[in-house]
Simulated scan of single mutants.
Amino acid sequence: ARVTIARLGSGAVVRTLTARVGGGGEPVELAAGRFEPGGYAAMVEIVPAGGAAGDVKGATTRRDFACERGGDEWADPRPDVA
């Protein structure tokens, strides 16, 4: 599996993570680290081992998310305007 995390708006890739996915459906956890405040999109693709862009086999999915500057994150779930 390949996970590509990009900035919303510019599309600039900030992280690319890979993991081996077993055939038994076991969960896979990847540590993406910290991000600067802003909006991001995570694209998950299933690719063959050693595969290049465009070698996608099976499902892909995208998840958009926001990161805020530290503070009371749970008080307001909307991203910081700045």
Rank of each mutant, 00 (worst) to 15 (best):
M43Q: 09
S10E: 11
R62Q: 12
P27N: 09
A53H: 10
G33L: 03
E68K: 08
G58D: 13
G38Q: 03
G9D: 15
K57I: 11
R20S: 15
R7G: 01
A32K: 13
V13M: 08
M43P: 00
P77C: 02
T18S: 13
C67M: 11
L17N: 05
G9S: 11
R7Q: 13
A53Y: 05
E73Y: 07
A75I: 12
V21S: 05
I5M: 00
T4L: 08
A82W: 15
V14E: 13
A41V: 15
D55Q: 09
G33W: 01
E73F: 05
A82G: 13
T4P: 00
G33E: 15
G50P: 04
F65H: 06
A49W: 01
E29L: 07
M43G: 02
G71T: 13
L8D: 02
G51R: 02
A52Y: 03
A53T: 14
G51S: 09
D76Y: 02
E36K: 10
A49F: 05
E36V: 12
R15Q: 10
G25S: 07
A31S: 14
E26A: 11
C67I: 14
R69S: 12
L8S: 09
V81M: 05
G9I: 14
A82Q: 06
T18M: 04
L30I: 12
T60G: 12
K57R: 12
K57Q: 15
Y40I: 13
C67L: 09
G22W: 09
I5G: 00
A82S: 11
P37K: 06
R7H: 12
V28E: 11
A53Q: 15
A12Q: 14
E73W: 06
R62C: 08
R69Q: 12
E68Y: 01
W74I: 14
F35L: 13
A82H: 09
S10T: 15
V81D: 14
G54I: 10
G33H: 06
V47D: 00
A59G: 11
E29I: 11
V3S: 00
W74E: 07
A6D: 04
W74H: 05
A12Y: 06
F35T: 04
A53M: 09
R15D: 01
R62M: 09
D55F: 01
V47E: 01
E29R: 06
A59V: 14
Y40G: 04
A53K: 12
V81T: 14
T4G: 02
C67N: 02
I46K: 03
G33S: 12
F35C: 04
V13H: 01
D64R: 05
R34D: 15
G58F: 03
V56P: 00
R63C: 08
T16F: 01
E68A: 08
A42E: 08
A31H: 08
Y40P: 04
A42H: 10
E36M: 10
D64A: 08
V47K: 01
